[in-house]
Simulated assay, not measured.
Amino acid sequence: MMDPNEALKRILQPGGINQTVFPPSSRYYGIETATLEKDDGTPAVYLRRRFCPQPDQLALLNEHEVVQGDRLDNLAATYIGDPEQFWRICDANGVMRPDELTETAGRRIRITLPQGIPGMSNV
């Protein structure tokens, strides 16, 4: 596995890679880089925009009713098997601020399959 600092250095180098080196579990996996030339001629490498999926396009696996003390990383570990996948729960519920999901006890949050993986039909 590549050192995260080394990966960032590779991404930010002018004329470097066109596709990022983020791991498959990252929300930025597959997002390409682009280069913008500054006024002084130096290149600025950046990640292209990541478009969040529409929550209703994600196949529902489960719903969780929030209780006081819930943390999103713990919910991601429980339902997805990886606490760093909390962003998938954010995408599934259409929120930009992760803490919003666990602020209110009794809120029901969606746990979904990853984007592009269809759910089973109820046939």
Rank of each mutant, 00 (worst) to 15 (best):
D73R: 07
L8S: 07
V21W: 06
N62F: 00
I31W: 03
T33I: 11
P14L: 08
T20V: 01
I11F: 14
Y79L: 07
M120W: 05
A92D: 02
A7V: 15
I80M: 05
P55F: 14
F51Q: 08
T102F: 04
G106P: 04
Y28R: 00
R88T: 05
D91N: 03
L36K: 12
K9D: 08
E63F: 11
R27G: 13
P53L: 08
G69M: 09
V66P: 07
E103H: 06
F86K: 01
A34I: 02
E32Q: 12
N93A: 09
T20W: 00
F51T: 09
V21D: 10
P55A: 12
D40G: 02
I31A: 05
L75T: 09
I89H: 01
T42H: 13
A34Y: 05
T78P: 00
M96Y: 14
P114A: 11
N74M: 13
P98F: 03
E103I: 02
P114Q: 05
P55V: 10
W87F: 14
T20S: 12
G81K: 14
I89P: 00
T20G: 14
C90Y: 01
A59R: 05
G69Q: 08
W87D: 08
C90L: 02
G16R: 09
T104S: 10
A105N: 02
T112F: 02
